[in-house]
Every structure is written in C-alpha cells, then in structure tokens.
Amino acid sequence: MNNLPTISHLQIVPDEYRKAPNAQDVATLIEIKNLSLNIDQQAIFSNISIPIYSKHINVLIGPSGCGKSSLLNAIIRLTDFTKDAHLQGEILVANKNILNPNCNLIELRKKVAMIFQKPTPFPMSIYKNFEIPLKEHGVKNKIDIAAKMQSALKSVGLWKEVKDRLNKNALSLSGGQQQRLCIARALTLAPAALLLDEPCSALDPISSQIIEELLLELKQKYTILVVTHNLSQAKRIADYVAFMWYVNQCGRLVEHNEAAIIFNKPSNPLTSAYVQGVTG
C-alpha cells in the first residue's frame, strides 16, 4: 500500500463524456453522463461518465465500496427505493434520459434487466417465477408463457436440467442454477441490456465458469454491463472496462477504455497498480 500514488497525484478522467479512442463508431445503448449520487447528503459517487457499448460486455471494476453497485442500481432507478437518494446528471437509455420524472419505470425495467449478486429466485415454483413477470407485462396465455419460459431456459442452458421439475420450488436448485434461472427470468421480458451485479461472487468456480460462458454467448444479442471485483473474471470476459476508485469515500471514475488497454497499458498509475493486484 505504501508506494501507491496518492490521491493528489491522481489524474481522474475529465468529467466530460467520451468514447474510447478505438470505439468511436461502436454504437452505445446506455450513456452515463456526469452522474452523481447522494444519499442523505453523503456523496456515494460523483461525476461519472461512461458509455455502455451495445452488444459488448462492459465491465465495471474497482474496490468494494466505490459505488459500482449503486451506479448499476441507478441505471434502472432502483435508487428510488433508498431513502433520501438523489441522482444528478444524465443517464440516457436509447437516447432518453431516464432521470426524467415522467420516465415510465416499468418500461425502463423491462428494457434493462438486472441480475443481483445473490441469486434471488422467488421462493415458489420455477414456473411461477416466469409466470408472474410475464403476466405483469401482458402475456396471459398459458401456452405463450410456457413457450417463452422454455426458450429463455434453453438460452441459459437450464432447460434440460429443470424441464421435469418446473413445479418444484426454485429454491431447490443449486446456487449456479438459481442464478441462471434469474438470468432466464430476466430474458423472457426481451430486454435490450443486462446489468449484472457481481453475478458470480456467491457461486462456486464451476458455476461461475458456466455463467461466464453464458455471458460471452449472450453478448451477441444483448448489451451487457457487469460489476465485479474479480479481476481475472474481468480479464476473461470484458470488451470494455471502467475502473472506479474512491476519493474521500466518494466513488470516482479513474479510467475507461478497451479491456486490452486497461489491463496492459493503462494510462493512470492507480489503474496499473490495481490491475496488477497491488491494491484493492
């Protein structure tokens, strides 16, 4: 820890929004611009600007407590559930600012799905786990529900494992299966983007590997943003990486670039210290 560059040496990325040099013509689905979050007067992160590239795996790394998860929550306005939470700046999803008070949150959350750290299937049958969200979004017909459930379960490779026990409680599945169930459940709503908050941190290595392979496959169709503090995982799956650090307990963006650049020749000394495992 001693030979770390001090915060005053830190050259934090300028506050304006910009794309990585080699990605000027890659489309973005979500654009985070000058975003700050305060909870009860306490700054959680401030002035974050990151482009989230369509149909790529975008990874957010950084030490715990630097506001990565809060940033993820902000994108689908789950911060609304926290008392006295205030967001400032802009989050554009498909060019619409979702911080606008008139934003239709249910539509937003349909478009951008989120997977949480701990697998949280609802403690009811596997079938019910799909039926409830699908019914909410207007799929009433049993045959349609079954078809959508089947295709979602197939796309996460879970269909063969669970097809004979769709009426069993979802909690009877293993941790890795539960997490894949959650991903499948999110996919049935046909989202454009998937946000994953440390999806493997509660799982064993083999389940983690299955999830990672799944993500690499899913990026053909979906925009993916993963928060992780597992660096080797980030190296294996990331196309673009944003690195966050905290200054006075407030999260700041240090660097954002292609994965290869972040891991091999980052421009910021703090980034290179972090990715080489000196700190964090």
Binding site: I106, E136, L189
Partner: peptide, 14 residues
Amino acid sequence: PHTYRLNAAALGLS
C-alpha cells in the same frame, strides 16, 4: 429481505 423487492422492481413488476 429487501433484495426480493429490488428483484421484483428490476423485473418491472408493479
């Protein structure tokens, strides 16, 4: 646990 409420909201449930 609060996560179930967040989860439900993330699925766009009212």
